[in-house]
Design a binder for these strands. Structure first.
Length: 490
RNA sequence: GGCCCGUUGGUCAAGCGGCUAAGACAUCGCCCUUUCACGGCGAAGACAGGAGUUCGAUUCUCCUACGGGUCACCA
């Protein structure tokens, strides 16, 4: 998709934790869609300012996820761009001067408080805003003395003590908070690294990000961002805060989506047989609704239809059932070639399903599965005939009994020996028999299918089961069923 | 606890002062049928509660309840 509006720039700024939570992925998706729907640029920036949380290979997971999800970025660490570097740890020298500029302007200050002192503040409880602003009004001399003495320091933002701050969010509207509620948050850590919040502001500004899109958990720190932008005299970006994704607990309550609700990582979902397109389609609709209520979307269609006004404010519950439905829809849309390719890993477990059987395999499996692993579950009977219960031969609706089943098998078995093993001849053989005897098809089909499969439910009917099994194995199994019935009834 | 945000069927959700309150998933029933699916048809199921504003509130305001988020030298 061509970039037609250079002023529109969004960014996905994950920290490399080694795991792509679907919540993060949805944020990335919306950032991508906002940019693309407006003809803008989608930027990838890696936020690795936390040295202690570095995870080997985590950045590769981010690239890989975005790639398989189809969220192609226009600028990023791997492809460059005019606003690099795109990895925060490579921009380290950049932040400190900005923090110092704020100190000079009187919007920030040096803080020499030890971690121990802060910890005791928190423990004693009740300190407004988490910090008592102990160092806020140190004299020039004291600051110089401490600096010269090499006492470690951080730089904190100096919040106004009174008044209020209002910001506008595209989703939540105007939000106002009292300035006295705002903490003098740390901008620059003692190790010289910026905090996430500060690095974000600087990078978003420098990278000319027009729309800051992020989860609603950042709503409460946004006023602090604005005060910072204003202190620098910078334009404030357009904010788009997204509602959270929650998970349903066993007791029916909901809470932030986490492992205990099931898989929440993109990779995990894919490993379970969910298609990237289905995952993307589903999460696009978790918190956003198109004007016309369309449900199934390609990424390209989403890029055209997406509109910020369709984003909802209330949190939504991740529904695995609906994801499953989407997955089934995407599977049903595949061509035979695509389906076979998709099913390859499962297909390899069934040597009897030779390429000449692929059309049949596709015909019976494609409409029946919503996830890949279901193939081997539904076809397990092919590999081994279970020691099934003879009661399976009794089916009320088909009016079959063990006696009728034995009778039918006795009649049909010799006939099957004689015929060609094709769909038409098998079908004609059995329906012809039923017709000749003046009975319902099911009366002969049911026992044949049970004997051949040993299971009550199979994808496809007797004909399909026998075709997959092959003539030799089918006859063997039916003969076995016949003998067991015969022994049981005599 | 302070502050901020939210609340339409089990779930996702449309709605933006006047509707028999859409649609989708899930559930249930019927049809199709060689079991199960697919497909088709149909059913059940919701505006958290209370005050206002208004001729009229799901929609606007306030309060209550409930849910969530946030209060780190994490991001």
């Amino acid at each position: 998709m061509p970039i037609t509006n250079p002023a529109i720039r969004t960014r996905f700024a994950p920290s490399p934790t080694g795991f792509m939570h679907v919540g993060n992925l949805r944020t990335a998706l919306y950032e991508y869609l906002i940019a693309k729907s407006l003809g803008g640029t989608f930027v990838l920036r890696i936020e690795d300012t936390d040295q202690e949380r570095y995870v080997e290979g985590a950045v590769d997971i981010i690239y890989k996820t975005l790639k398989t999800a189809g969220l192609v970025h226009d600028e990023g660490p791997d492809i460059g761009g005019d606003y690099g570097p795109y990895v925060q740890s490579e921009r380290m020298d950049l932040y400190k001067p900005y923090a110092e500029e704020l100190v000079k302007k009187g919007h920030a200050y040096y803080c020499f408080c030890s971690k121990e002192r802060l910890a005791s503040l928190h423990k004693d409880g009740g300190v407004e805003g988490g910090y008592d602003r102990h160092c806020r009004d140190l004299s020039e001399e004291e600051i110089k003395k401490n600096l010269d003495a090499g006492i470690p320091y951080v730089i904190r933002q100096k919040m106004p003590l009174d008044g209020e701050t209002t910001f506008h969010d595209c989703v939540y509207g105007d939000i106002t908070v009292q300035n006295k509620e705002l903490e003098d948050q740390i901008l620059l850590k003692a190790d010289g690294y910026p905090t996430y919040n500060f690095a974000n502001i600087i990078d978003d500004h420098l990278m000319k990000i027009s729309h800051v899109v992020r989860g609603s958990e950042y709503l409460s720190s946004t006023p602090k961002y604005n005060l910072c932008y204003e202190a620098f005299g910078w334009d404030i970006p357009t904010y788009v805060h997204l509602p959270l994704i929650q998970g349903k607990n066993e007791d029916g309550t909901v809470s932030k989506l986490s492992k205990r609700h099931g898989s929440t990582g993109f990779e995990d979902l894919v490993a379970q047989g969910f298609l990237p397109e289905a995952i993307i389609n589903y999460i696009a609709l978790l918190g956003w609704c198109p004007k016309d209520n369309q449900e199934v979307f390609t990424l390209d269609e989403l890029s055209k239809a997406f509109d910020i006004s369709g984003i909802s404010k209330s949190p939504s519950v991740f529904d695995y059932d609906k994801l499953e439905w989407f997955n089934g829809e995407y599977i049903k849309k595949m061509t035979e070639e695509e389906f076979i390719e998709f099913a390859k890993p499962e297909l390899s477990k069934f040597p009897m399903i030779t390429p000449d059987l692929y059309p049949l395999f596709t015909e019976i499996m494609q409409p029946r599965i919503t996830r890949l692993p279901q193939i081997s579950e539904k076809l397990a009977f092919l590999l081994e005939l279970s020691d099934y219960d003879l009661e399976l031969y009794v089916h009320k609706k088909s009016k079959t009994t063990k006696e009728s089943s034995l009778e039918m098998l006795n009649i049909v078995l010799p006939m099957l020996h004689e015929i060609e093993w094709t769909k038409d001849s098998l079908s004609e053989c059995m329906t012809g028999l039923a017709e000749g005897m003046g009975v319902k098809n099911a009366l002969v089909m049911w026992p044949v299918r049970i004997a051949a499969s040993g299971t009550a439910v199979t994808p496809g009917g007797a004909v399909e089961v026998m075709l997959l099994l092959g003539k030799e194995e089918s006859l063997k199994r039916i003969e076995s069923g016949r003998q067991r019935l015969s022994a049981a009834l005599s």
